[in-house]
Design a binder for these strands. Structure first.
Length: 258
DNA sequence: ATGGTTGCTTAGCAA
């Protein structure tokens, strides 16, 4: 069982790369973020032709999340859906092959002293509450996506440059810990607890990728029943190379059969 | 060093 998470930064701009990725890795499930398209304009036919079902929570211009899967998804849930209006399309989940899979695009937060950072902290707290209200850590569950949080300084190449930003802010890291306190483990750190130089995002600017000025903000977090099956986690750094890449690289987790 | 780059939408926002 192979699960990928990838912030594509526009599914239409990345369509050829997405189809190539599906062919190259043949994932059972792939969670996408930053579709930047409403559902009606999602490339349904091309994805179907590649052999995948798709559930999409789309939005014009910004945000947008999806889950593609070989097997048909069940019990699809869209948004935080907690009674408080959220105009931004950032969350979708479905049950696939017995696993509750989430594709999440956590708000960036802009700057610590901004309303957007308040929205980020609130959104993360609401996600934590949703997990506790609707799900159990005793079930196989994978929370995948762009968390916009580097969990520790080990996940940051240039700690001085990122210190104090919304990516490394103690409140953001605390909110991530609160989500994980539901009963989730960072799959990559389970297998690579102390290894640095593992990044999933490099800014388009300032030659960040050639300089490897990266951060690890894309995660596949899993409950204990899935963690027990975890075989391998890797970051497809090569996907960040070449012409017109996303600014994020895919994270790939492989699990033993149930 | 408040710059620099990309995508969506068409000048400005978000990242």
């Amino acid at each position: 069982m192979k699960i990928i998470t990838w912030n594509v930064n526009s599914v239409r701009a990345r369509q050829d790369r997405l189809l190539a990725l599906l062919a190259r890795h043949a994932p059972d499930v792939i969670c996408l973020q930053e579709l930047k398209v409403e559902a009606s304009l999602f490339p349904w036919l091309e994805i179907r032709s590649a052999g995948y079902h798709a559930v999409v929570h789309g939005q014009k211009s910004y945000n947008g999340v999806a889950i593609l899967s070989r097997q048909e998804p069940a019990d699809v849930r869209v948004g935080l859906d907690d009674g408080v209006d959220d105009p931004q399309a950032r969350l979708i989940s479905a049950r696939i092959e017995g696993i509750r899979v989430f594709s999440a695009y956590v708000p960036n937060g802009a700057e610590p002293e901004s309303p957007k950072f308040d929205y980020k902290k609130s959104w993360m707290a609401r996600l934590a509450a949703k997990l506790r209200a609707e799900h159990s850590a005793a079930e196989p569950l994978a929370l995948c996506g762009d968390f916009n949080v580097a969990p520790t300084d080990l996940d940051v190449r240039n700690v001085d440059r990122w210190a104090g930003t919304v990516i490394c802010h103690p409140a953001a890291r605390g909110a991530l810990e609160e989500i994980r306190a539901f009963g989730l483990e960072d799959s990559l750190r389970r297998l690579n607890p102390t290894e640095g130089n593992l990044y999933s995002y490099w800014d388009y600017q300032q030659l960040a990728f050639p300089k490897n000025d990266g951060i690890r903000i894309d995660h596949i977090d899993v409950t204990a029943p899935l963690a027990a099956r975890l075989r391998d986690v890797r970051i497809d750094r090569d996907e960040r190379k070449g012409k017109q890449p996303s600014d994020h690289a895919p994270v790939i987790a492989t699990f033993d059969a149930a």
